[in-house]
Computed example of a mutant assay.
Amino acid sequence: MTASLGRRVAAEAVGTAALVAVVVGSGIQATGLSRDVGVQLLANSLATVFGLGVLITLLGPVSGAHFNPVVSLAAYLTGRRTGGGLTLRELTAYIPVQIVGAVGGAVLADAMFAQPLVKWSSHDRFAAHLWLGEVVATAGLVLLIFGLNRTGRMHHAPVAVASFIGAAYWFTSSTSFANPAVTIGRAFTDTFAGIAPGSVAPFIAAQLAGAAVGLGLLVVLFGRSAPAETEAVVPHGESALAAPSAH
């Protein structure tokens, strides 16, 4: 039986909060254990890969495990042509709770490590090459999620999406935020994974541009529609809404 909208919204809030708690918490832990930035990034990326894979596996059957506004938006846009995906009502319910969950996850991570609960990040990420990295990371994420859908390989999503995010930590200049909600949440913590508030808007603009590029590549590589289009990544119940997130 398909989960009610209330349960799906709760799953999106909890999942996004847990994802950000993993990203921020592992960053704090890594900086406490090593002064080597490479080791810190390795620890942060590994924790994110494992955490994301678990969250997609656990909550995918409930909400589709988006945890990411650009994924939800892409699910809505693709579903408009096929009758599947998210409805406008579901989209407007998912996005606010993803953002609130992301902020809550950052606060939770800070609390677990005795950091100030809310302290704006001083980690400036305002640079054109970082924005390009976000375009690439988000385009790849959207293409992967909806490409899996088009080829009927949704069951690979937990491993494939988590693996892509882990790789993108290292091959993109921005370390692959690829998620507006997570970007906003990470502005609330002045720790390793933080992003200065002044850097948030350009990152989100780049992520939206990347989502558009990803959907364009989807059409080029797989065509405009397919029978499996209603199932964007992890099915929940009898109908599948979309796909998992990014960090």
Rank of each mutant, 00 (worst) to 15 (best):
S225K: 10
G194I: 04
L218Q: 03
H236Q: 08
V234L: 11
P202I: 08
A193H: 03
A232H: 13
T230L: 02
T191G: 12
P227Q: 15
I195C: 11
R186F: 01
P235H: 10
A205T: 12
L208N: 05
V234H: 14
A232P: 10
A228L: 14
G237H: 04
R186P: 02
A209V: 14
V233P: 10
V234D: 13
F192R: 12
G223D: 06
I184R: 07
T191N: 11
V200P: 04
V233Q: 12
G194H: 02
S225W: 03
R224Q: 13
F192M: 13
A201W: 11
A212Y: 02
P197V: 02
V233D: 12
A226T: 10
A209C: 15
G223K: 07
A187M: 09
P227A: 15
P235D: 07
A187I: 05
T191L: 04
A201T: 11
I204R: 10
A211L: 10
A206E: 08
E231V: 14
V219F: 06
G216H: 04
P235E: 06
V234N: 14
T189M: 02
S199C: 09
G185V: 01
V233W: 05
S225Y: 02
F222L: 08
A232K: 14
A209Q: 02
V213F: 11
A226R: 07
A206Y: 12
G210K: 09
L218A: 00
A226I: 00
G237N: 09
T183W: 03
P197L: 05
A232V: 02
R186W: 02
F188C: 03
T191W: 01
L215I: 11
P227N: 11
L208S: 10
V213A: 15
R186T: 09
G185R: 00
A206Q: 09
V200Q: 06
G214L: 08
T230S: 15
A212V: 14
L218M: 04
A211M: 14
E229N: 14
